[in-house]
Design a protein around this nucleic acid. Sequence first.
DNA 1: TGCTATTAAATAGCACGCGATGTAATATGC
DNA 2: GCATATTACATCGCGTGCTATTTAATAGCA
Lengths: 155, 155
Amino acid sequence: MTTQRTSRSRNPKPSLLLSEQLCFALYSTMLALNKVYRKLLRKLGLTYPQYLVMLVLWERDELMVSEIGTRLFLDSTTLTPLLKRLEASGLIARTRAASDERQVIITLTRQGRALKQQAQEVPGSVFCATECTPEELVSMRDHLLLLRAKLFKNA
Amino acid sequence: MTTQRTSRSRNPKPSLLLSEQLCFALYSTMLALNKVYRKLLRKLGLTYPQYLVMLVLWERDELMVSEIGTRLFLDSTTLTPLLKRLEASGLIARTRAASDERQVIITLTRQGRALKQQAQEVPGSVFCATECTPEELVSMRDHLLLLRAKLFKNA
DNA sequence: TGCTATTAAATAGCACGCGATGTAATATGC
DNA sequence: GCATATTACATCGCGTGCTATTTAATAGCA
C-alpha cells in the first residue's frame, strides 16, 4: 500500500481519490453542460456536436469535412455520420469538390442559414445557466484552452 | 443580422463564435483528456468511465448501482451495461441484495482489488501530461465544481 | 508513362450517455 | 389486506467518439 496524500495536504501528490481529481470535475461538468444544451437545442432539432458544426459553418461556409474536423478536434469517423444526419435534416448539403474528387464540401442550405436566427438566444441562455460573471467564464475558458493544448501535446 | 460582440470587447455579450465559448473549451479539453486516459488505461483494460467506477469501488466496496451512479452523475441506463462488461472482465461481481431484491450490489473481486496497484501510477502520469502546477489544477477543479453545481441546478 | 505513397472520406465494430419505456420488488394508503 | 404508487434496475433505440481498416482520388517520382 502506497501512502495516499490528498491535494490539500502540505505536499500534494496525485491520488486515486475521485473527489480530488480535476479530470472527474471536467468530465462531470461536461455531462452537466450537455444536459443544459440538450434542453436548449431540442427546439432547434440539434445535438450539441451538431450545434458545434453549425457554429463553424455559420462563421464560414463551404468547408471540407476535414476543415470542420480540425476546428472541432473531430475526425471523419465521427463527422461523416453526423453530417449525413444534418443533411437529412435539410440544414446542409454535401457535394464532392470538382477540383479534387476526394473532398466533400459542406454547404449551408437556406434552411441551415435561417436556423442561425433561432440559435442567437442559445449562448445567452447558457450564460444564465452558468450563473457566472463573464470574467469568470473567460478565465476558465483560457485556463482550459491552455490545458487542452498541453494534453494534446502529451496524448 | 444582429451585432456580434466578442467577450473581449468592452461590453461582453454571449456570442455564436466558437472560439469565444467556454463550453467548447470544456468539450474539446474533455476530448483531449480522454485521449490521454485511453493510452494510460489501455494496459489496465479499462475505459475512462470504467476507471471511474473502479475508483469509486476502491474507495468503498459493496455499493448499489444507484450509489455508484450518484457519485458519478450517471444512471442505470449507462451503468448497467458498463458494469456487465466489468463483470465479464472479472473485476467485479453483481449480486442481488437479500434484504431488497430490487438492489444489485457491486463487489470487487480479488482481481478487481488487485488492479488498484497497477492504477496507482495513472494519476501521476495524467498530472505530468497536464504540465500544470498542483495549485493550478486545484484552482481549475474548484471552479469547475462550482460551475457543475450551477449547471445541474439550472438543467 | 507507370508505380508507389499519400490523402480524404467512408465503413465496421465497440463503448458510452441518455430519453423513453418496461418489469419486478417494495412501500404506502385506505 | 389489497390496490396503487414508488423504487431499482434493465431494455431499446439513437447519436456520438474512437480504433482499425477500406476505397477512391491525387501527388510524387523514377
